[in-house]
Amino acid sequence: MNWKHGIISAIVLIALWQLTVTLSGVAPFILPSPLRVANALWYSRALIAEHAWVTLAEVILGLIIGSILGILTAINLATSSTARAILRPILVFSQAIPVFALAPLLTLWFGYGMGSKIIMAVMIIYFPVASAFFDGLMKTPSGYLDLAQTMGATRSRELWHIRMRAAMPSLGSGLRLAAVYAPIGAVIGEWVGASKGLGYLMLLANGRVKTDLLFATLIVLAVLTVCLHLSVDILARRLAKDH
C-alpha cells in the first residue's frame, strides 16, 4: 500500500460517513458529520494536544520500559535452563489473566497519575517482546554455533556477537506488536481512572454528549498509534537489515 492508496481510501471513508449522516438525518450527538468533527478538532486543538502529550508520554515510557524488561527476560530465559524451568510456566500463566481486568487494581495501587498507565502498557507489551526475542535467541542457525564453538568462543561473547545479532529480526517483530498494543494499554488505564490523557478526554466528551470531540480525540489517538507503528517499523527494518 502506498500513500496514494491511503489517501484515496480515507477520502472514500469520509465520503461514506458524510453520506450516511446526510441520508439518515441522524442527530449530531449520535453521529456527528465529518465537518463537525473537523471543527471540534480545530477549536479544541489545545485541549486535545495537552491530553495527547500525556498519553504519548505514557505509551513511549511504557514501550521503553516494557521492551527493556522483555529483552532482559528473553536473554535470561535463553541462557539459563533453570530460568526456563521456573519462569516460563509463570509467564504463560500470567498471559491467562486478562491485563484489562487488572486495570482497576493498578489504579488502586499506583494512583490516578501516569504511573498506573505506564505499568498497564508495560504489562501488555512485555510478553510479546519477551516471547518474540526468546524465540529468536533459541533459533540461531546451528552452523553459526558450531563455528563459534570450534573457534573457542566464550558463552557471553557468543551470545552478544552471534545469538543476539541473529535474533534481531525476531526482536523487530516483537517491537512491532508492542507498538500497536502499548496505546491500548495506556488508554484502558485512563478509562479506569485518570485526570489526564486521551482516554480520559474521550470519557469526558462522551459523558457530556460532545460526540464530535469524542470522534476528534479518537482520530488523534489513531493517528498517534499509526505514527508510532511507522516509527517502530523503521526501527524493526533496521534491526532486520542484512539478515
Binding site: G143, D146, T150, A153, T154, R165
Partner: peptide, 28 residues
C-alpha cells in the same frame, strides 16, 4: 581445529573483514 562447512557461515550482518576477524572477537 578449524572448521569449514558446506555453507560459508559468514555472518550476514558483518563485513568480510569483520567476518574474517570474528574468531578473535569471540574469544576476546
Amino acid at each position: 581445529t578449524a572448521y569449514m562447512a558446506q555453507s560459508d557461515l559468514l555472518f550476514p550482518w558483518l563485513t568480510l573483514l569483520e567476518n574474517v576477524c570474528i574468531g578473535a572477537k569471540l574469544r576476546g
